[in-house]
Simulated assay, not measured.
Amino acid sequence: MTSREQIIQLFRQRLGDYISGREICSVLQISRAAVWKQVEQLRELGFEIEARRSRGYRLLESPDLLLSADISAELGTSLIGRKVHCTSEIASTNQLTQQLAVDGAPEGLVVLADAQTAGRGRMGRCWTSPAGVNVYCSILLRPPISPRQAPQLTFLTAVAAAETLNALYSLNARVKWPNDILVGGRKIAGLLNELSAETEQIHALVMGVGINVNMTAAQFPADLRYPATSVRIEMGAVQPRLPLVRLMLQRIDELYLEFLAQGFSPLRRRWEALFDLLDRQVEVDLGARIISGVVGGLEPDGALKLFLPDGSVERVLAGDVKPIGMQAKG
Rank of each mutant, 00 (worst) to 15 (best):
Ala189Gln: 05
Leu165Trp: 02
Cys137Trp: 00
Thr199His: 10
Ala197Met: 08
Gln152Ala: 12
Ile211Gln: 06
Leu156Ile: 14
Arg122Pro: 13
Arg125Asp: 04
Lys187Arg: 10
Asn134Asp: 14
Val183Ser: 03
Leu191Val: 06
Leu153Pro: 14
His203Gln: 13
Thr164Phe: 00
Leu165Met: 10
Ala162Ser: 14
Leu141Glu: 01
Arg120Tyr: 08
Asn193Phe: 02
Asn166Gln: 09
Glu194Leu: 06
Gly210Val: 09
Leu191Phe: 14
Ala161Thr: 15
Gly185Glu: 09
Val175Asn: 07
Val159Lys: 09
Cys126Phe: 06
Trp127Pro: 02
Ile211Asp: 02
Trp177Asp: 10
Leu205His: 02
Val133Phe: 07
Phe155Leu: 13
Leu192Pro: 03
Gly119Cys: 10
Ala167Trp: 00
Leu191Arg: 03
Thr157Tyr: 05
Trp177Met: 08
Ser138Asn: 05
Arg186Pro: 00
Asn166Glu: 06
Val206Ser: 11
Cys126Ile: 14
Gly184Tyr: 13
Thr128Asp: 10
Arg125Gln: 11
Tyr169Trp: 11
Val135Arg: 07
Ala162Tyr: 05
Glu194Trp: 09
Pro151Gln: 09
Gly185His: 10
Thr154Ile: 12
Cys126Met: 09
Arg142Ala: 11
Arg142Asn: 13
Arg174Phe: 04
Leu192Ser: 00
Ala197Arg: 06
Leu191Met: 14
Met207His: 09
Cys126Thr: 15
Asn166Thr: 08
Arg122Ala: 12
Val206Thr: 15
Ser138Gln: 08
Ala160Trp: 07
Ser170Cys: 12
Trp177Ala: 08
Tyr169Asn: 06
Gly208His: 05
Arg120Glu: 04
Arg186Tyr: 06
Gly124Ile: 11
Gly210Gln: 04
Gly132Leu: 05
Pro151Val: 01
Ala158Phe: 04
Ile139Ala: 02
Ala158Leu: 02
Ala150Gly: 08
Gly208Met: 05
Ile211Glu: 01
Ala161Phe: 01
Gly119Gln: 07
Gln201Gly: 07
Pro151Gly: 05
Arg125Asn: 13
Ala131Leu: 08
Val209Ile: 15
Ala173Pro: 04
Leu182Glu: 11
Pro130Met: 08
Gly132Phe: 10
Met207Val: 13
Arg148Lys: 15
Lys187Pro: 13
Arg125Gly: 07
Leu182Ala: 01
Ala197Asn: 11
Gly119Trp: 00
Gly119Tyr: 02
Gln149His: 14
Asn193Thr: 15
Val159Thr: 09
Leu205Asp: 01
Ala167Thr: 14
Leu191Thr: 01
Val133Lys: 15
Ala167Asp: 11
Cys137Asn: 13
Leu153Lys: 01
Ala162Gly: 12
Pro147Glu: 01
Ser129Glu: 03
Val159Pro: 00
Gln149Asn: 13
Pro151Asn: 12
Gly190His: 03
Ile202Pro: 01
Pro143His: 11
Trp127Phe: 12
Ala173Trp: 00
Ala131Trp: 06
Cys126Gly: 07
Ala197Gly: 12
Thr199Lys: 13
Pro143Tyr: 13
Leu141Ala: 03
Thr128Leu: 05
Thr164Ala: 02
Asn166Asp: 14
Gly124Gln: 06
Leu192Asp: 01
Thr157Phe: 07
Ala160Cys: 08
Gln201His: 15
